[in-house]
Amino acid sequence: MKILLAVDGSDYTDRMLSYLAAHKEWSGAGHDFTVFHVVLPVPHRAAAFAGPEIVHGYYEDDARMVLEPVRGLLARNGIEARFEHRIGHPAEEIAAFAQKGKFDLVIMGSRGHGALTNLVLGSVANKVLAACTVPVLLVR
């Protein structure tokens, strides 16, 4: 199974990774994992003021800070994965990457707001569910 692990460095990502590590059937043969992180874009005016080198460095640093702990945790649990990151809006990028990459499943953590909070604020997980044609497993 080709599985996309959407991560953001939050406690909810940690819960999802702990779930994955605790269920050894996920690390079994036949699964192909890709860890995916989306870095929010720097506002246009801030990017113009800072310059392309600083902005590019920011994007790379953000991705490294999120992906390196995940890389270590997966390695300790014997799970091999590829690592990717993009710049953009998380829900849109996750759904597009999952569909273009022909993944069988997206796994991601979810905060688990109540229905009213999700209605008012929305959530990345809800937006991924709405936009993605690939099945999504949310871990709370």
Rank of each mutant, 00 (worst) to 15 (best):
G57I: 13
A75I: 02
P41D: 10
V124Y: 01
R86D: 12
Y58V: 10
I3V: 15
V106S: 07
L67R: 09
G30S: 09
A131F: 02
E25H: 09
G78M: 07
V70G: 05
A46R: 13
E93I: 00
L4C: 05
N126W: 01
G122F: 01
E68F: 06
D14C: 01
A22Q: 15
D62Y: 01
Y58K: 07
P135E: 05
R64M: 07
E84I: 01
R86P: 02
I107E: 00
D61N: 09
A81E: 06
E93C: 10
A22G: 15
A130L: 08
A95P: 10
I79W: 07
R71Y: 01
T133N: 10
N77C: 07
M108D: 01
E53Y: 08
V120Y: 05
N126C: 03
H56R: 14
P69T: 04
T34C: 03
G30K: 07
S18T: 11
H56T: 13
A91I: 03
E80T: 08
Q99E: 15
H44W: 08
R76W: 00
V70A: 07
G57D: 15
A63D: 08
A115G: 02
A98V: 07
N126I: 01
L20I: 11
A96D: 14
G112P: 13
D32Q: 13
H85R: 05
L67Y: 11
S110K: 07
G57L: 13
K127C: 05
A6H: 03
E93M: 14
L40S: 15
I94V: 14
K2I: 11
G114M: 03
V139W: 04
R15M: 15
A48G: 06
K2W: 08
S10Q: 07
P52D: 13
A63I: 10
D61M: 03
F36Y: 15
G78C: 04
H31Y: 13
L137N: 01
H113F: 12
E68Y: 07
A50N: 09
